[in-house]
Write a protein that binds this DNA or RNA. Sequence first.
DNA 1: GTTCTTGCAAAGATTTTGCACGGTC
DNA 2: GACCGTGCAAAATCTTTGCAAGAAC
Lengths: 144, 144
Amino acid sequence: MELRDIIDKLKSNGYKVTEQRKAILQVLSSNPNNLISVENLFIKSKEIYNKTNMSTIYRNLEILERLNLVYKLITEDSIALYKLVCSNEHHHHIICKECGKTEIIEFCPINTLNKLAKDKNFNLTSHKLELYGYCVDCQASKDD
Amino acid sequence: MELRDIIDKLKSNGYKVTEQRKAILQVLSSNPNNLISVENLFIKSKEIYNKTNMSTIYRNLEILERLNLVYKLITEDSIALYKLVCSNEHHHHIICKECGKTEIIEFCPINTLNKLAKDKNFNLTSHKLELYGYCVDCQASKDD
DNA sequence: GTTCTTGCAAAGATTTTGCACGGTC
DNA sequence: GACCGTGCAAAATCTTTGCAAGAAC
């Protein structure tokens, strides 16, 4: 999704285009495949627009999440990470534990999962599939 | 895993068997298939041994996690939930969003995942597959 | 008696909120 | 000008920690 499209979607939902919001979106869209922490998003947004405040980051992430424009992931150590959604189609990610880089994986075992849920008499509403590892760059730097 | 086995494992790792610890384990083992929040674990542990303190809950969960005796899950709203591990074999769960009940699912697409990771030049170290839905009991009560 | 555990209270970390001011449309 | 957004500071949550007293072995 392009930065322009995101801003359009915000506008069409009655949200205004502020410098802070632009800074946040610029950071997110400059690295659309990388997960970023709230803290780092704050730091980088400030580099673009110095007056950006932490609570603004949180408020905007909440809006973006509600509009389904960002993807939120909580790591095993309970750190919230965000990235822009890449597409509206259902998909999963492989995530680098070192640098946060993600790639989409073209695989979803949903049919099997539906069957399994049915066997257990569960009404399946959603599922999470995430792969963790080290990307090729971080594998190299780990060898140092 | 039996309560007895857990206590043995604690002992063999140099941990002592205290009333607080027994209360916590009793709560966890009384519902081995249900995820429980720290708050609820605290409340229920106090019912068994009144002097149990919140920090004791946290400290014990940390120990149990380190010994791989409990499984931790963080919900989409960042709430930490715990349950005893059922077995040492790799497996996934289907989780009821209403009551926290879990069941093991006998399926893991690890071979496919390995292949996908390889294609992306990722060194796959772990993965997460969780199914969410409503168990048969909670489906019924939702219709009320 | 030694070592591990706990309670307490305080501190940390992360996230949310109220309100008055300022910006966007 | 109406309404939305922000900064600030304060509060709320959740979790961790230091320390002295107490319990387990």
